[in-house]
Simulated assay, not measured.
Amino acid sequence: MAATTRTARGRAASNKSRSGTPLLWLAFAALVVVLDQFFKIVIVRSFDYGESRPVTGFFNLVLVYNKGAAFSFLADAGGWQRWFFTGLGLAVGAFIVWLLFRHAGQRLFSLAVSLVLGGAIGNVIDRIVYGHVVDFLDFHLRGYHWPAFNVADCAITVGAVLLIVDEFRRVRRH
């Protein structure tokens, strides 16, 4: 029995080292945070609030603030939402770190939750430092503007899509 346990542990360790470690995925999440914060700092230093600069016929750079969550949900709630969304982001971040340590060998899953983690932490930093999230990517078509967003929001969205793809692949295998 002891030999079987050692062999199983050896295989698990071998799979983990081939497929990635939690530290690799945490480093990837940190890269997302750095990129997100870099672009936000550039925009905050280069734009006045509400200023918009056209880049293409369907895309502008703009400086706007979001005190709420996605699509400005609860933006006018009176201030408590800042700390609620900060706490929620930190709780989700802690849960994702736990998931990464449990499932680091699952590449697509780990990539997906690393993107979500990096995006969540990027927006938490904004809430702590500025009291709101800095948004600057503004897509529009025929007079309709999608709500402005940022690199962190992109990472969260792509991560969520990859989680769905990962789940579909897992279901199809079984």
Rank of each mutant, 00 (worst) to 15 (best):
T7M: 08
T7S: 11
A8L: 14
R9G: 06
R9V: 06
R9Y: 04
G10E: 14
A12C: 03
S14R: 11
N15K: 13
S17I: 07
S19R: 12
S19M: 10
G20H: 07
L24T: 02
F28L: 11
F28S: 05
A29C: 09
L31H: 02
V34G: 03
L35I: 15
D36F: 14
Q37H: 14
K40M: 12
V42I: 15
V44P: 02
Y49Q: 14
Y49A: 15
G50F: 11
E51Q: 15
R53V: 15
V55Y: 12
T56L: 12
G57Q: 05
G57Y: 02
F58R: 05
F59M: 11
F59P: 08
F59R: 04
N60W: 06
V62D: 05
L63E: 03
V64W: 08
N66F: 04
N66M: 08
K67W: 06
G68C: 09
A69E: 01
A70E: 12
F71S: 09
S72I: 07
F73N: 08
G78T: 05
G78N: 01
G78A: 00
G78R: 00
G79N: 05
W80G: 00
R82G: 00
W83F: 06
F84E: 07
L88Y: 08
G89S: 14
L90I: 12
L90A: 14
L90D: 09
A91N: 07
A91P: 02
F95Q: 07
V97A: 00
V97Q: 05
V97S: 01
W98L: 08
L99A: 15
L100K: 01
F101N: 04
F101S: 04
R102K: 13
G105V: 09
G105P: 05
R107Q: 14
R107D: 07
L108M: 15
S110T: 02
L111V: 13
L115R: 02
I121T: 10
I121W: 10
G122A: 04
N123T: 07
V124Q: 04
I125H: 05
I125M: 02
D126Y: 01
I128K: 03
V133A: 03
V134W: 10
V134Q: 03
L137S: 03
L137K: 05
L137H: 02
D138I: 10
L141C: 06
Y144F: 07
Y144Q: 05
H145T: 02
P147Y: 14
V151R: 09
V151H: 09
A152S: 13
A152F: 03
C154P: 00
I156F: 03
V158E: 01
A160W: 10
L163P: 08
V165M: 11
D166T: 09
E167D: 10
F168C: 12
R169N: 12
R170F: 13
R170T: 14
H174E: 15
H174K: 06
